[in-house]
């Protein structure tokens, strides 16, 4: 099925929104408004948006990759960015409209990298057992592919033909570790043959290519033919985490590398494509930018007004600890 013009514009808009929300947190950390960590996903927006926006059913399970703290995945699933923004400021989101993350199959992310594989295997078991023809999409980084959990989960998923789509966001680095020094091969897609499943490599800067490749994998999983692996080649523009160095081992990452990748910026590439095809005009582009800029300003003001949690009675935590 070809994507309609509206769908193409939606993909574009979602990528721009993802970038904007990411920038918002980067700036809020700089100004001291945000707290904790942030791992920017700038440069890789085509992966979550291309993979998730039109390929998944509302009830499919999705394990987001940690970059951008999952904002691309949330937006692609139609979730409000309010909780994302508020929580990075240490605040409790108020008046959130639209579906919750749980209602769109997102059940959180792990502080320990690599939990994604095994938890997704479990979601795959659920999807296979419950007869609803759901699938599970698991997103992970090149670095996390070196956790042993990958092997255990991919093997199990293949043996049991679980309906799982494994999508790697290969940005060539894991914190300060370049891929070339942490893997004896260049392509993560090669792993697939070890588990007797299809493995494809896709240009992670091309949102339509990501969409297509993941669509094929989703269709296969939904047809009961088992898991597949899609590797998206991409890059992260910023350092591993805000406030930290931007290095490879202990030296600055090559400036040329960043320059080259920025020439293939996923938003820029798609915009040029849509302008050329006449799907978008320059005026459209400007309007979209303005709307998203305005949304970001509203979000920031909104977050300022959300309350900092202060339990009158700390035993409210009990409700979080155990179910009834």
């Amino acid at each position: 099925m070809e994507l309609t013009q509206d769908q193409l514009i939606k993909l574009y808009t979602l990528m721009v929104r993802t970038r904007k929300c990411d920038e918002l947190i980067v700036n809020a950390l700089k100004s001291g408004k945000a707290i904790g960590f942030f791992h920017s996903g700038q440069g890789s927006e085509a992966v979550p948006i291309g993979a998730c926006t039109f390929n998944l059913r509302d009830d499919d399970y999705l394990y987001p990759h940690h970059r951008g703290h999952g904002i691309g995945y949330m937006l692609a699933r139609g979730l409000s960015p309010k909780p994302f923004v508020a929580s990075h400021m240490g605040r409790v989101a108020q008046d959130v409209e639209g579906p919750t993350a749980r209602e769109r199959g997102i059940h959180g992310g792990s502080g320990t990298i690599g939990a994604s594989f095994v938890l997704s295997a479990g979601m795959g078991i659920t999807a296979k057992k419950n007869g609803k023809n759901q699938i599970t999409a698991c997103f992970f980084g090149d670095g996390s592919a070196n956790r042993g959990t990958l092997h255990e989960a991919m093997n199990l998923a293949s043996v049991w033909k679980l309906p799982i789509v494994w999508v790697c966001e290969n940005n060539l680095y894991a914190q300060y570790m370049p891929l070339k020094d942490s893997m004896a091969r260049e392509d993560i897609a090669d792993l697939a043959s070890g588990y007797n499943m299809p493995g494809v490599i896709v240009d992670g800067q091309d949102v339509l290519a990501v969409h297509e490749a993941v669509k094929a994998a989703v269709d296969r999983a939904r047809a009961g033919e088992g898991p597949s692996l899609v590797e998206c080649k991409t890059y992260r523009y910023r350092g591993h985490s805000e406030g930290g160095p931007d290095i490879s081992h202990y030296e600055p990452r090559p400036a040329k590398e960043l320059e080259e990748w920025k020439k293939r910026d996923p938003i820029k590439l798609f915009r040029e494509n849509l302008l050329q095809q006449g799907v978008l005009t320059d005026a459209d582009v400007e309007r979209i930018d303005k709307e998203i800029e305005a949304e970001a300003e509203t979000l920031e003001k909104y977050a300022d007004e959300c309350p900092i949690p202060k339990p009158e009675d700390p035993s409210v935590l009990d409700r979080l600890l155990y179910a009834e």
Partner: peptide, 15 residues
């Protein structure tokens, strides 16, 4: 520490 996981953000003060 109170018998809870450590909550994120400002809530850690309560644990």
């Amino acid at each position: 520490a109170a018998n809870y996981p450590i909550p994120g953000g400002f809530m850690e003060d309560y644990v």
